[in-house]
Amino acid sequence: MTAAQADLQAEILEMRKGLRIDRPETADGAALWRIAKDSGELDLNSSYSYLLWCRDFAGTSAVARAEPDGRPVGFVTAYLRPDHPRTLLVWQVAVDASHRGRGLAAQLLDALTARVRAEHGVTRIETTITPGNTASERLFTSYARRHGADVEREVLFETSQFPDGPHNPEVLYRIGPLSV
């Protein structure tokens, strides 16, 4: 780990009093589903998928917990791309309404990528964002700036590819290489 990475990790750990970031547990699945549902922006997956995600992808995901009860108030779900294991695909980022506007999504994303970079040597992240999702666009472009990385964008899935009715296209954001 470089000195810059250590500084970033120390900064992440100095979260607002009363919050901590760690790995999700299966018991968190229902809370993550609720936070995603209440976000108003995310495609809501089945509650079952959030339970599985917390079980099978806890190592590449993160949850913010309120202290002292450990209640989840935000999360990032992600996975390593099977064909590109140094690329972390960020699936969803959501923060409970009571904790929005305080930079928690950025802290979650930074903490998760610091951990996954140290454990798996990740050099790039990817995510998809629908046009007009300004909060996500800002989150990921500011992430790229903080980490000295370029951002490439291209449409990954066109509207016509979604079988379940009207859906905006999904624009792939490729961020990397990560320097900090």
Results as ranks from 00 to 15, higher is better:
T26Y: 04
V151L: 01
A58I: 10
Y50G: 02
R16P: 07
A114F: 08
A62E: 00
I129F: 06
R117Q: 11
F162W: 10
L88S: 01
R16N: 14
L108G: 04
L52K: 14
I175V: 02
Y79R: 08
G18A: 02
I21C: 04
P82V: 15
S49D: 15
L8V: 15
E119C: 09
V63R: 07
L51V: 15
R100V: 06
S47D: 11
T127D: 00
G74Q: 06
G40N: 05
D96Q: 03
L112N: 06
I12V: 15
A62C: 01
R100M: 06
A31R: 02
L80C: 10
R124F: 08
R100T: 01
W91A: 00
A111S: 06
R20P: 03
E67S: 04
L80A: 12
L51D: 09
C54P: 05
S46T: 15
I21R: 05
L172K: 07
L51S: 08
F162C: 03
S47Y: 08
E25D: 12
E170F: 02
V95L: 02
D56F: 12
L80Y: 09
I35N: 06
H84W: 12
A149I: 05
G70A: 13
E67K: 04
S49W: 13
K37L: 08
Q9S: 13
L172Q: 03
G18R: 00
S49Y: 14
R174K: 07
T77E: 04
S49V: 14
T128S: 05
A36Q: 01
L80V: 03
L89Q: 14
S160N: 12
V171S: 00
R65A: 00
S98I: 00
Q9I: 04
G70S: 13
N45H: 15
S98R: 14
R124E: 14
R146F: 05
V116H: 00
M15R: 11
Q92F: 02
A97P: 05
A27L: 10
F57Y: 13
Q107R: 15
E14H: 13
T127M: 01
D38H: 10
G29Q: 05
G18W: 00
R117W: 06
E158T: 07
W91Q: 06
R86C: 09
F157I: 12
C54H: 05
Q9K: 10
M15E: 11
A94Y: 01
L178Y: 03
A3T: 13
V155Q: 09
G132E: 01
A149Q: 12
D43V: 14
A6Y: 08
P72T: 03
V63F: 02
A27N: 07
G101Y: 07
D43P: 10
E158Y: 11
T87I: 09
E170W: 03
R145A: 13
E154F: 12
E126I: 04
M1N: 11
A10L: 09
P166D: 15
V155I: 14
G132Y: 06
D22F: 08
